[in-house]
Computed example of a mutant assay.
Amino acid sequence: MKNKILVVEDEEKILRFIKANLVASGYKVYVAKDGQSALDLYEKYLPEIILLDVKLPKLDGFEVLRRIRGFSDVPVILVTVKDSSIDIVQGLELGADDYITKPFEINELLARVKAVLRRIKDEDILLENEIVVGDLTVNFLRHEVFVKREEVKLTFTEFKLLGELVKNKGCVLTHEVLLTKVWGHEYRDETHYLRVCVAKLRQKLGLTEGIPGWIHTIPTVGYKLLE
């Protein structure tokens, strides 16, 4: 079965170019030219991944992402203009799984799509379906996280990062190891992905610094989950 991708882009020429290459690579592609249409098409077709431009009519990409994250952890690759570091950070903070800047080479885009889809499929098989650390409970079988029995909604990438830390509780995991495990080998030097995602996890989990389950920073090295 073909992977389904929703491409959200208001520039017709770019949209046709992206769609043609994705279709040629074996994907089933749906297209939207504005933010509201993107939301409607997502609910109708439930694609496995969304390629989302930031600059859109009706609803911009950030608002689309914000609304989608209210009910779905579908992977989202954000498309921004070159050198828009503020947009990139904002997108990652809102729950984007990756980003790519215009102008881009089509091979780079296809590689990003493959990396995100690989991230979804390459789930580790655990001997333990559930791990409890203090007030934090991670259920790998159901993809659920609880803090003091209250469910915490995470994106797919956030869940995978937390899972790596929980599976290795008490151990220091380097930036490179975490980036490779969660995002893929080609992201091993992209520490800003990790920094933003850890900050979001701390915010969502709401744990007090220093208690079991807290994600502790090891300066210049990496992170460990306290037990």
Results as ranks from 00 to 15, higher is better:
residue 12 E to V: 13
residue 12 E to W: 07
residue 13 K to L: 13
residue 14 I to C: 03
residue 14 I to M: 14
residue 14 I to E: 13
residue 14 I to A: 12
residue 15 L to C: 09
residue 16 R to C: 04
residue 16 R to E: 13
residue 16 R to N: 11
residue 17 F to W: 12
residue 17 F to D: 12
residue 18 I to Y: 01
residue 18 I to V: 15
residue 19 K to I: 09
residue 19 K to N: 06
residue 22 L to A: 03
residue 23 V to T: 13
residue 24 A to V: 04
residue 24 A to S: 14
residue 25 S to G: 03
residue 25 S to Q: 00
residue 26 G to H: 10
residue 28 K to Q: 15
residue 29 V to I: 07
residue 29 V to W: 04
residue 30 Y to T: 01
residue 32 A to M: 02
residue 32 A to Q: 08
residue 33 K to W: 07
residue 34 D to P: 02
residue 35 G to I: 06
residue 36 Q to D: 10
residue 37 S to D: 15
residue 37 S to Y: 05
residue 38 A to H: 07
residue 38 A to W: 07
residue 39 L to F: 03
residue 40 D to Q: 11
residue 41 L to F: 05
residue 41 L to G: 01
residue 43 E to Q: 15
residue 44 K to M: 12
residue 44 K to V: 09
residue 46 L to N: 13
residue 46 L to P: 01
residue 47 P to A: 00
residue 48 E to M: 07
residue 49 I to C: 04
residue 49 I to R: 05
residue 49 I to Y: 09
residue 50 I to V: 15
residue 50 I to F: 06
residue 50 I to Q: 07
residue 51 L to Y: 09
residue 52 L to A: 02
residue 54 V to I: 15
residue 55 K to H: 11
residue 56 L to D: 01
residue 57 P to D: 11
residue 57 P to G: 02
residue 58 K to W: 03
residue 59 L to D: 10
residue 60 D to V: 10
residue 60 D to I: 11
residue 61 G to S: 02
residue 61 G to V: 02
residue 64 V to P: 04
residue 65 L to I: 05
residue 65 L to C: 15
residue 67 R to M: 09
residue 67 R to Q: 15
residue 70 G to F: 03
residue 70 G to D: 09
residue 71 F to N: 12
residue 72 S to Q: 09
residue 73 D to K: 15
residue 75 P to E: 11
residue 76 V to F: 06
residue 77 I to M: 02
residue 78 L to A: 13
residue 78 L to G: 09
residue 78 L to V: 11
residue 82 K to Y: 10
residue 82 K to A: 12
residue 85 S to G: 01
residue 85 S to V: 14
residue 86 I to K: 13
residue 87 D to I: 05
residue 87 D to L: 06
residue 89 V to I: 15
residue 90 Q to G: 00
residue 91 G to K: 08
residue 91 G to V: 03
residue 93 E to V: 06
residue 93 E to N: 13
residue 97 D to K: 06
residue 98 D to H: 07
residue 98 D to A: 00
residue 98 D to P: 04
residue 99 Y to V: 04
residue 99 Y to N: 08
residue 99 Y to S: 04
residue 102 K to G: 00
residue 103 P to Y: 11
residue 103 P to N: 01
residue 103 P to E: 01
residue 107 N to G: 09
residue 108 E to N: 08
residue 110 L to K: 09
residue 110 L to W: 06
residue 111 A to V: 04
residue 111 A to Y: 03
residue 113 V to M: 02
residue 113 V to Y: 00
residue 114 K to F: 06
residue 116 V to D: 02
residue 116 V to E: 09
residue 117 L to S: 09
residue 117 L to A: 10
residue 118 R to W: 07
residue 119 R to T: 11
residue 122 D to E: 15
residue 122 D to P: 02
residue 123 E to Y: 12
residue 124 D to A: 12
residue 125 I to Y: 08
residue 126 L to M: 04
residue 127 L to G: 11
residue 128 E to A: 14
residue 130 E to Y: 06
residue 131 I to G: 02
residue 133 V to I: 15
residue 134 G to W: 09
residue 135 D to R: 13
residue 136 L to M: 04
residue 136 L to Q: 04
residue 136 L to P: 09
residue 137 T to Q: 08
residue 138 V to K: 08
residue 140 F to S: 08
residue 140 F to T: 10
residue 142 R to V: 06
residue 142 R to K: 14
residue 144 E to I: 03
residue 145 V to A: 00
residue 145 V to E: 03
residue 146 F to R: 15
residue 148 K to C: 05
residue 148 K to A: 12
residue 148 K to M: 08
residue 149 R to W: 05
residue 151 E to F: 03
